[in-house]
Design a protein around this nucleic acid. Structure first.
Lengths: 109, 109
DNA sequence: TTGACATATTCCGTTATGGGCATAAACTCA
DNA sequence: TGAGTTTATGCCCATAACGGAATATGTCAA
């Protein structure tokens, strides 16, 4: 079995750097597809495909405005991930020493 | 270009459900590979491969104990994700109404 | 050293990915 | 209706994913 489909859940959807970039860009407000194309110098079909994935898991909402389609980040959909990582918050700081040691060992190697 | 390598960054590493399960299991304390195998009813090679990915991005640390190898979650490595999603926290709540409407539209469709 | 146990690695097959390109679809305006 | 603009989709390719089975590596005990 290959990796779970990117459309299956939010974790997979944000595994792609481009999509995280797009989410950040669309967080402040609506933007048309062509804006994203210009901003990140990606091909239009590529952008549309990423948006399709993001929309599939509810990470963005779309709205037609004449010829254009305006997208916007639905930040609420990122909450599950924030909460999941937050469950590990209680362990932060405890292992700082070990992390440091590991980094130093790697540095010498 | 195919999908980004799972070993490239933490976002890709946690895109797999199994690996998230393993991380949660190893958060409380060290566990041997065989413990994970029993716990999740996965094949031993499969577990070893997942652990390799997790170790590759620093999400787990390993320690030999005789014939066994004890793994432990390095929660610190999850911090970047928590912080990234945290950047969207300021937008939470604003779109609740729209989200609700969207869900209702879907319910009727 | 040999045997037993625990873990890691390799090879293989199936599947999904994301980009490029061409084209379809949706919309506006004359 | 037809041309022009914007966005979505379909097809193909090269790549990497994950699982299974077999095997290699590592460790201990006798």
């Amino acid at each position: 079995m290959p990796r779970a489909a990117t459309t299956s859940d939010v974790f997979n959807a944000i595994a792609e750097t481009r999509r995280r970039d797009i989410l950040a860009f669309l967080a402040d407000g609506e933007h048309a597809v062509s804006d994203i194309v210009d901003r990140f110098e990606m091909s239009q079909p590529s952008v549309s495909k990423h948006l399709r994935v993001l929309a599939g898991v509810g990470l963005v909402d779309a709205r037609r405005d004449g010829q254009r389609v305006l997208y916007r980040t639905n930040a609420e959909a990122l909450r599950p991930i924030h909460e999941w990582t937050g469950r590990f918050e209680r362990y932060w700081g405890r292992q700082l020493l070990r992390v440091k040691e590991r980094a130093e060992r790697k540095g010498r190697a």
